[in-house]
Design a protein around this nucleic acid. Structure first.
Length: 506
RNA sequence: GUCCCCAUCGUCUAGCGGUUAGGACACUGCCUUUUCAAGGCAGUAACCAGAGUUCGAUUCUCUGUGGGGACGCCA
């Protein structure tokens, strides 16, 4: 019987969800989907200084806003609850005690200041800063006496002095030589919180809590960033100490900024939320991120016809660990923009309209905001459907919508020029009359009228087309006029033509 | 500094000893379109360096160089 795949995304709630995190989340999500497994969301908030409930909330919301739903997590619950590390202190305390009992770990009284001073000194002497073992030799009696007398101690793990080999799904064998890892802290020294006092230990550190949880929560695969590769040596030691089976590890390369440096605010890192707020569609962001540091093994024939535009289902079906990249990838905003433009056209109009709605309602353009209150949602969808073809971002749509909301917009110089002269005048007079004569203005009817006007006014080409475009839409370029006109309706079109004639041709 | 990882067009990548080194974004040109885009077609553009292994290295090995990561009572 095949083991059920269980993977997790385990962020630390110290800020919002960044693109690197989105990618890790996405890879885990795709892997779970592909294998019919479960995606677990675990909050790693052992750093009580930096973790806040507010950050946890925004993080959770960011995940939801991407349309990814974990199977288990702090919001969903699950058989392995709790999913927030700060709620799992008892579990950690029990496991720390097991190590203590076997003398695989020991209390360490060294202060943070002492340790960091020694680290600086080691670095200066070109040595790897390892814990010097000051408290490793303390007898159990001495340690417990010092604790009884009120001294606070973190718990340090005795790192075995042997080689460790990690079999990584993307990197193959990774060797960690004996002696490269010193004894490391698995819990901090206790603070004064009630729980910590009662349990007699401080908050666990990442490397410890992570292993205990991954094991207890039944993780089968750990898919995470390369920044955790070195840490894995420590984690391997803990798995060993508990005699636990190892999950499979897959360390993916990092996402870099345009300057080839770690993503930061300077080089284009932004949160998932920021991209959505800028007018990117979540579908585009996810599809783009999927291909950043991963590629499908076999040649695909996606429904879209483009080799890199895949539906979420196609993505999940194609995803595998083999396609994960070893070298870091630079985040290319140009490609994301292109991808978004593709999705603007690809997605159902209703979906684009839904995603675009807030950009219209919160637009700085007054006529757009006002207009939004007067239209039906069906008309809104038709409008977005018309406008989306010409644009890259959702946020560009409100500006473009002015051609529909403003019946007497200010014209630029070139447009005004195009309306002057006897030909233009003849065109608009004929156009007005012809439109006035039809019951309803459909695309076909309009095309017929346009042809007829050309004949009767004896004008063709740009001379014919531009005055019509400008008089009906108020701009010299934009979507096809035949598609704009039916949306406006006969009476508004007539109103616009009359207005234009009064202003420029009287 | 030490340890770990990595290295193909500007960017994302295919390649797993013999290829005209393929695709995608971007860029350039042409076609299409009675606007602007989109779309179609074509083009420019890459194997970090040096040794070795081999009949033959982009591909395997070593060294160097460059980049990334880790070395925390951060994750």
């Amino acid at each position: 019987m095949a083991e059920i795949v269980r993977v997790r995304y385990a962020p630390s709630p110290t800020g919002h969800l960044h693109v690197g995190g989105v990618r890790t989340l996405l890879f885990n999500s795709l892997f779970a989907k592909k294998h019919g497994g479960k995606l677990i969301l675990r909050i790693e908030n052992t750093d009580q200084q930096r973790s806040t409930p507010e950050h946890e909330q925004t993080l959770l919301q960011d995940v939801i806003s991407l349309g990814i739903t974990p199977d288990e997590g702090p919001d969903q619950g699950g058989a392995f609850a709790p999913y927030r590390q700060s709620d799992r202190m008892k579990i950690y305390a029990d496991h720390v005690q097991m190590l203590l009992d076997q003398n695989l770990a020991y209390p360490c009284f060294c202060s943070a200041e002492t340790i960091s001073a020694k680290r600086e000194a080691a670095l200066k002497l070109s040595r790897t800063p390892l814990y010097d073992g000051t408290c490793a030799k303390l007898s159990k009696e001495e340690s417990s006496n010092r604790i009884k007398s009120g001294e606070r101690a973190g718990i340090r793990f005795r790192a075995p002095n042997i080689d460790f080999v990690l079999k990584d799904e993307v990197r193959g064998s990774v060797e960690f030589k004996a002696g490269s890892v010193g004894d490391f802290l698995i819990t901090r020294s206790p603070q004064s919180s009630e729980e910590e006092v009662a349990l007699g230990i401080g908050m666990p550190t990442y490397n410890f809590a992570c292993v205990v949880d991954d094991h207890l929560m039944g993780m089968t695969h750990i898919i995470r960033g390369e920044d955790h590769l070195s840490n894995t040596a420590r984690q391997l030691m803990i798995y060993d100490a508990f005699h636990w089976d190892l999950p499979k590890f897959a360390h993916t390369a990092m996402v870099l900024g345009s300057d080839r440096q770690k993503l930061s605010k300077r080089n284009g890192d932004a949160g998932a939320h920021d991209y959505l707020a800028q007018g990117y569609l979540k579908e585009a962001l996810l599809n783009f991120l999927a291909f950043l540091g991963w590629h499908p093994g076999s040649t695909l024939t996606p429904r879209s016809g483009h080799p890199e535009i895949l539906t979420p289902e196609e993505l999940a079906a194609a995803f595998d660990l083999d396609g994960l990249q070893k070298a870091p990838a630079v985040f290319d905003l140009e490609k994301l923009r292109w991808m978004n433009a593709q999705y603007m056209r690809l997605l159902p109009a209703e979906r684009v309209a839904e995603a675009a709605r807030s950009f219209f309602e919160n637009s700085e353009i007054e006529s757009v905001r006002l207009g939004m209150k007067l239209i039906t949602s069906e008309w809104f969808v038709r409008m977005v459907d018309l406008l989306r073809m010409d644009h890259t971002l959702l946020s560009e749509l409100p500006l473009a919508s002015r051609i529909l909301f403003e019946d007497s917009p200010a014209l630029d110089e070139a447009s005004k020029q195009a309306l002057l002269g006897p030909e233009s005048k003849a065109v608009l007079i004929a156009l007005e009359a012809a439109i006035d004569a039809v019951p309803e203005l459909t695309s076909e009817v309009f095309l017929g009228i346009q042809k007829q006007v050309g004949v009767s006014a004896q004008v063709k080409g740009k001379q014919l087309f531009m005055p019509i475009r400008i008089a009906t839409t108020g701009a010299s370029h934009g979507p096809e006029v035949k598609n704009i006109v039916p949306l406006l309706g006969k009476s508004r079109v007539l109103k616009r033509i009359r207005h234009t004639r009064e202003q420029f041709q009287s």
